[in-house]
Amino acid sequence: MTKGRRSRRGAALTMALAAVVLAAASGCAREADDVSAAQDGGVVHVACGATEEWCAATTEQFAKTSGVKADFVRLSSGEALARIQAGKDNTEFDVWYGGPADGYAAAGAMGLLEPYASANAKVIPAKYKDASGLWTGVYVGALGFCSNGELLKEKGLSAPKSWADLLDPKLKKDIGIAHPSTSGTAYTALWTQVQLAGGDQDEALTYMRRLHPNVLQYTKSGSAPAQMTARGEVAVGVIFSHDCVATKEEGFPDLEVTFPSEGTGYETGGVALVKGAKNPVSAKKFVDWALTPEAQEIGPRVKAYQFPTNPNAKVSDKVVDLDSLKLVNYDAAAAGAAKPALTKRFDEEVGQAPKS
Rank of each mutant, 00 (worst) to 15 (best):
M208Q: 13
F145L: 10
M1R: 14
L134K: 14
K155Y: 10
A341V: 03
R5V: 11
F72V: 02
K339Q: 13
G270Q: 07
M110S: 14
T2M: 06
V194F: 02
A338T: 04
Y116V: 09
M208E: 08
G265T: 10
S132C: 04
L167Y: 08
L205P: 05
A295L: 01
A204P: 06
A313Q: 02
A56N: 10
L152A: 01
Y207G: 11
T343M: 05
Q227P: 13
G99H: 03
C55N: 03
N279S: 05
W289E: 09
S132K: 15
Y218M: 14
L157I: 13
A337T: 12
S77I: 04
S76Y: 03
P311Y: 12
A107G: 09
K153C: 04
F72R: 00
K161N: 08
Y128D: 05
L17V: 06
D168A: 08
V46H: 04
G98F: 03
D130Q: 14
V138S: 08
A334P: 00
P160I: 10
E349A: 11
G10M: 08
A70N: 03
L196P: 09
G4W: 00
Y266A: 07
A197D: 13
A333Q: 12
V68E: 03
G237C: 03
I84C: 07
W289C: 09
D33R: 11
G27F: 05
A12R: 15
N90L: 13
S26F: 10
G137A: 01
A50F: 04
S162C: 02
T65G: 01
Q193W: 04
D323W: 03
L143I: 07
A131T: 14
H242R: 12
K69R: 15
T192G: 05
G263P: 10
Y330C: 03
D200H: 13
E154C: 04
A226H: 02
F252M: 01
L134N: 07
G336W: 07
K344M: 09
W135K: 01
F346S: 07
W191I: 02
D130R: 13
R231V: 11
G141V: 00
A332D: 13
T59P: 01
G99V: 00
K3D: 14
Y116C: 05
K88I: 06
D317G: 13
G299T: 04
Q39I: 13
D40W: 08
S118V: 05
L255V: 01
A12F: 14
L17E: 08
G265R: 00
A126E: 02
N312S: 15
R301E: 12
T185G: 00
N310A: 09
L157T: 12
L112C: 12
Y266T: 07
Q227R: 13
A226P: 11
K88D: 09
K285E: 14
E233M: 12
